[in-house]
Design a protein around this nucleic acid. Structure first.
Lengths: 230, 230
DNA sequence: GCAAAAGTGTTTCCTTTACACCCATGC
DNA sequence: GCATGGGTGTAAAGGAAACACTTTTGC
């Protein structure tokens, strides 16, 4: 029985980054084989001795040099013809990364790795357009009912960064006062004594930091968070 | 290269049924191989020419005779040691079924198929306990922010059935008046002119039906549904 | 001193909750 | 006629939304 008879299992990563008010997606250019030279999501086959999550992390590092500190399983794509060469089922993950923390380095299968503005994506190999869109949809949904997104920022950030992040990703205007009131009311965002170094004009804002532990505690008790999309 | 070198891909189904105020889980007794005679979730290997969803549907029918009218992907379980014999990664689905519509028939790999009260589950083969619990958690979460659950009832049902279903699954008391008001306010539950045939004592209630189309339209526009768990 | 962003409270509105009595039916 | 579940409205409380002026800084 040839290899052609078996279903191969792969993982793909939809990794988002955020810089200066804009959301980016991490893509690689494939070095070998079918779909060579087209842009695609980082990913690859799962090896026998590793879990799915280990596989994504490994592929991400190999292909881009990025180590995602937030990873969550998105969906498993199992259409029969998603890869024309052979049957491949792929488990997709969402990752969040602060791009400033990594220098992109294409290593193995990828000849290039690059951040693309989310609203200027090239067309992607296989069904990766579809996977990326699902990822984006999930990110938006999740952001609006769970305060993730701190992974996209520096560990200390002015409040306006958070605002902009939310507005950027959700594509909506958010009332500054209500947003700040709400997020601070949970208690997992803490004020530090530092101030932003003036990154332009205007009054420098205080820096805040995310208290992951407090967040986990609250979450365990059923946090109730929601940013309306109106 | 022996078969042992390849990862096998399976699907498993966490199928819920609802009868007389109680939530049930559909289990099979395995006929062959390792874990023979222990209870397990219906499921099996994905074949090369079928999608994941087709595989679940096929296995469900083969092993239990049940045709789920609601199926949603739950999660993909990829721990290395979840099956001690060889590497198996499993894509789990949640299904909802009105048990009264089917006679259980174990067919191929299963020697028996049976509905188990959710609070009296036997211990299951492999990591199926874990999968089942994830499924239950998801069902509860989903039920509380999206009005699924009509698949568990007859197509025409008295309002009290819905109430009981919600209370049964969420394990909480719900105010009858507020619940009815809220659900009817969406407009996808329609009053019929029929009345329940007295299934006991008391005044027979009007029968309602779920208008799936209206529901889909609303959902597309971003429905806002939530049943508080307090 | 002016342009740019940060910081801050109050009022209005709407949604959610709590709550109790009458009605139809079977026995 | 009584036991059982069905049907219904209103008031109070709480959370979300709308909204504008003052402060600090760089230039």
């Amino acid at each position: 029985m040839s290899d052609e008879q078996n279903i191969k299992l792969a993982v793909d990563a939809v990794v988002f980054g955020y810089m200066e008010g804009e959301l980016y997606l991490l893509l690689i250019k494939r070095k070998y084989g079918y779909n060579k030279d087209s842009w695609a999501l980082p990913g690859g086959f799962v090896e026998n001795g590793e879990t799915l999550e280990q596989a994504v992390k490994r592929e991400l590092i190999e292909e881009t040099g990025v180590k995602a500190n937030y990873l969550e399983q998105l969906y498993t794509f199992g259409e029969v013809e998603r890869d024309h060469r052979r049957r491949v089922v792929s488990v997709a993950y969402i990752g969040l990364v602060n791009p400033q923390l990594f220098e992109l380095e294409a290593d193995t299968d990828a000849s290039e790795a690059q951040w693309f503005l989310i609203r200027e994506l090239p067309s992607l190999a296989f069904d990766h357009d579809h996977i990326a869109q699902s990822g984006l949809k999930r990110l938006r949904a999740k952001l609006s009912y769970e305060p993730i997104g701190f992974e996209l920022l520096n560990s200390k950030f002015p409040f306006s960064d958070l605002e902009q992040l939310y507005q950027g990703i959700l594509g909506k205007h958010i009332d500054r006062r209500n947003f700040r009131k709400k997020l601070l009311s949970f208690g997992f965002i803490e004020e530090t004594e530092e101030y932003a170094t003036h990154s332009g004009s205007g009054r420098p804002g205080k820096l805040f930091e995310f208290n992951e532990q407090k967040y986990s505690e609250l979450k365990a008790n059923g946090i109730h968070f929601e940013i309306k999309l109106a």
